[in-house]
Design a protein around this nucleic acid. Structure first.
Lengths: 189, 189
DNA sequence: TTCGGTGCAAACTATTTGCATCAAA
DNA sequence: TTTGATGCAAATAGTTTGCACCGAA
């Protein structure tokens, strides 16, 4: 049944494209199928390309960007910005999602009772006459561990999954205390 | 008194920098004063540089980026992403801000009762143990005018402040219907 | 006097675009 | 047959970085 739902969704996406006058190319089909087949994975352009090339290695990055742009403009795809220097893509769900994002260690937690929160946000924007687009909210904060370090006056400590020895959070943040290239840590490179 | 408050804030910012071991250079002072003297303007790097160069024309863009990065890491500055292809900077206020952002025409509206909404969001993340950072929420949606067009099956129409004749929203979105370089419209270029 | 900070230009990286060619309709 | 779509490579644009010199502490 999950399989069925996905197929329906793909059809729906293709139908929308067609209605708008876009051609249903093989590349677009693969990209859409890949996106819909990996809901929850939030790929960036490179990751999406890689998956797509498993089906058809001849697809180019430009086509990925062009397709993603179209889908995004039609409200069929959301862009996520996690301050990583690039975008991630997300199929808008039926419900919205709510995350907290620790500004210091990058940790992401999912909030509960999303339906309830979604209703609340919908009510918020009623006064504007806007119709909401299902989306994911990233609420920036400081997680309890980092907050504790800061409170104690301690140097922050890198909590990335595989800490980089030169991550600035490993040795604290400040002059002469180590440095990393990316916003949070480059241990994932 | 507003003048006084700003001066205090500047002092606070400089003190925090110093405590972390950063040097209080003239450039950093100017950048911080400019940011704190233009709260609510949400400049990007270029705009900030321009303002800063009105005080000291010798300041370079690299220094702006480096300073902004430091402030951001210390929680003294928020980055805003409006899907424009670059970041805007924002001094975190005492209260959070809530905007709706029309995904089709780019219109931004401010919501009312921000304090109330802020309390709500704080309550949301209580369960995670996160401490919230004052921030601005951009809630993506479709404004009533664009929704109407879509409902009618009409082509969307560009509603940018100074419409670009080639904006895709001017002639509708789809093949052979005009095109613009930027995400929404390049009429601001 | 010592390093951290700066300006400059070069490098980098995600994304966009021009163009010849391909293929959906 | 028409014209939108693609792949490639080159171009963009925001941001970062190497380096020689400068200046805060």
């Amino acid at each position: 049944m999950v399989e069925k739902e996905k197929k329906d969704l793909v059809e729906e996406y293709l139908k929308t494209l067609k209605e708008r006058g876009f051609r249903l190319t093989n590349q677009r089909k693969i990209i859409i199928e890949t996106l819909l087949g990996n809901i929850g994975s939030h790929p960036n352009a490179q990751e999406l390309l890689k998956k797509v090339q498993e089906i058809d290695p001849s697809v180019g990055i430009a086509t990925v960007y062009r397709t993603v742009e179209i889908l995004s403009q039609m409200g069929l795809l959301n862009l996520m910005n996690l301050e990583e220097g690039f975008n991630r893509f997300e199929i808008p769900g039926k419900t919205m999602h709510f995350h907290t994002f620790c500004k210091y260690c990058g940790k992401i937690l999912h909030l509960n009772n999303e339906k309830e929160k979604e209703d609340m946000v919908k009510k918020w924007i009623e006064e504007t006459g806007f119709k909401i687009i299902p989306q994911t909210f990233e609420i920036s904060g400081i997680c309890s561990e980092c907050a504790e370090d800061i409170e104690k006056g301690d140097e922050l400590i890198c909590r990335c999954p595989s800490p980089n020895p030169t991550c600035r959070y490993r040795k604290g943040f400040g002059p002469g205390k180590g440095k990393c290239r990316m916003r949070w840590c480059n241990s994932n490179d």
